[in-house]
Structures are given as C-alpha cells and as structure tokens.
C-alpha cells in the first residue's frame, strides 16, 4: 500500500514560454499518489501550457518533471514510451478519432500496445465504456454524440491501458450543470475504485469544490503559482484577496489597490 504523502509527480523549477514571452517562471510543486489534483487559474494564465509541459508535449526551457523520479523532459526512446504509457490524457474536446466508432477508439491503444485476442479487446473496451456510462454507444461515431458523451468516451480511451495518472483538460467546460455534476461523480468514483491519480485543469468552481483534494492556482502576474492548498482553505484563509474573490466568484474589491484582476 503506497503511503498517501508520497509524491508521484514532482515538478521542479519549470520555466516555459513561447518565443520570448515567458508564460511560466520557476514553477515547482508535487502531486501525491492517489489524490485529485486541480490546476486552476484565470483564462490565459498558462494552465494548459503547464499541462502540456507535464505530459511531454512541450519541452520546458528549464526545469524538470519527475514521474517516480524519472524525468519526462530528458527521457527518450523506450524510457519515454514507458513513461507515456503510465499516463492517460483526456483533451479538452475529446480528440476522439472521427472515423472510428467509440469501441474502436477505445480499442486502439489495446491493439497497438497489447497482444490481447480480438474478443478480449472488445470486452475490455465494452467494460471501460460501461464504466463511463456509455455501454449502449459503442457503435456510434464521435460526431453522433453530444459534447459530454465525447468527453466521457475520451476518458474511457485515456484509461484503457490502466495508467497510474490521468490528466483531464477541462473535463466539465461547456457541459450543463447536471452533466457536469455527473462528470464530477465519475471522476470521484474512478479515483476511489481505481486508485488513480488525477491531474485536472479547470476553472469550474463547483467541480473544484466537489472533487479536488488539493489545488494550485496559477496567475499571469507572477507567471506561476499564487496559492496552493485545499479549496476551502484558499477560499477562507488566503492572504491574497484576488484568490479569495476567485473562490467566492466575486468581483475584486476596489480597496485592494495593486491586487486587481488581470
């Protein structure tokens, strides 16, 4: 049994920018095994950029991203492939392959990375789809589904190889409140039953209160983390009025002077 405090991802002094404009400066934090970790912040603060650095799509200008001590930034070849297999990513719009049915989408990683017999792949795909509540939609093409269903199918595809860590980019953005709540429940259920670590990028407050064990908050002004802790802590006790306002969904009080919203 892993100890709850053990860090599964360590981000150390990460710096990244596009060209000359630096987006993230010297960012460091840990993600602990088995927790639901939320990255949040206003629009344009580098949430998705941070995510892409963590999953190896972008190469940081400086710093390290360690998965169980192995650096994703410098990993190459077989080591990198092994690291990538230990994570699953759900992209914002699902990024399902439009020419494949849901079952085929979910089967694809199994076909490529395992030697399972056909019937076994069909069964595992059907099970994963049932887990996200889409058991009746295996034969559908992604274009025939709603946005929420596509996101859930994308989660099923991301976890079909049983990764230790699941990254979700805006899992509830653009969904109605009921579907959003169902999505939150799904995430909680998966975290509890599969013992997975979740890293979620979002700025949907209700979701954050429901699912997050810990959050870090990014801000454009400091090009990095302005606050870290549990959502309740940040809402009630943060010294930064901007952070408190964010969590209470208020406008910034005028008296705060320099602390204006970007």
């Amino acid at each position: 049994m892993p100890t709850p405090q053990e860090a599964i991802i360590e981000v150390r002094n990460l710096t990244f920018g596009y060209g000359d404009s630096v987006i993230l400066q010297d960012v460091s934090f840990d993600v602990r095994r088995g927790e639901i970790f939320v990255v949040l912040g206003g629009s344009g603060c580098g949430k998705s950029t941070l995510l892409k650095n963590m999953i190896g799509l972008h190469r940081p200008q400086a710093g390290r991203v360690l998965y169980d001590g192995q650096d994703m930034v410098t990993a190459e070849g077989a080591q990198r492939r092994a690291l990538l297999r230990s994570i699953g990513v759900m992209y914002q719009s699902g990024a399902l392959f439009g020419s494949l049915t849901l079952t085929e989408n979910v089967r694809l990683p199994l076909e490529e990375f395992t030697d399972l017999p056909d019937a076994a792949m069909d069964l595992v795909a059907a099970m994963k789809l049932q887990l996200v509540g889409l058991s009746d939609f295996g034969q559908y093409l992604p274009s025939e589904l709603s946005g929420g269903m596509r996101k859930r199918a994308a989660i099923a595809r991301a976890m079909v190889l049983d990764p230790q860590i699941l990254f979700l980019d805006e899992p509830t953005a653009g969904l109605d409140p009921i579907i959003s709540a169902e999505m939150d429940q799904l995430i909680l259920q998966l975290a509890k039953s599969l013992n997975m670590t979740f890293v979620i990028v979002t700025h949907e407050l209700p979701s954050i209160y429901t699912v997050a064990d810990r959050v870090i908050m990014l801000d454009q002004r400091v090009k990095g983390i302005v606050a870290a802790g549990t959502p309740i802590q940040l809402r009630d006790d943060s010294p930064d009025p901007w952070v408190r306002s964010f969590f209470r969904r208020e406008t910034i009080p005028d008296a705060t002077g320099g602390q204006t919203s970007p």
């Binding site: 049915t101 079952t103 085929e104 019937a119 069909d122 069964l123 059907a126 099970m127 049932q130």
Partner: peptide, 13 residues
C-alpha cells in the same frame, strides 16, 4: 462490473 451486463458483446463495427 456485473457479468450480466456483458452477455452480448458487439464487435467493434
């Protein structure tokens, strides 16, 4: 999972 939910597995297409 419940086995009774998987009595009929549709092949992928």
């Amino acid at each position: 999972y419940r086995p009774e939910n998987f009595l009929e597995i549709q092949s992928s297409r």
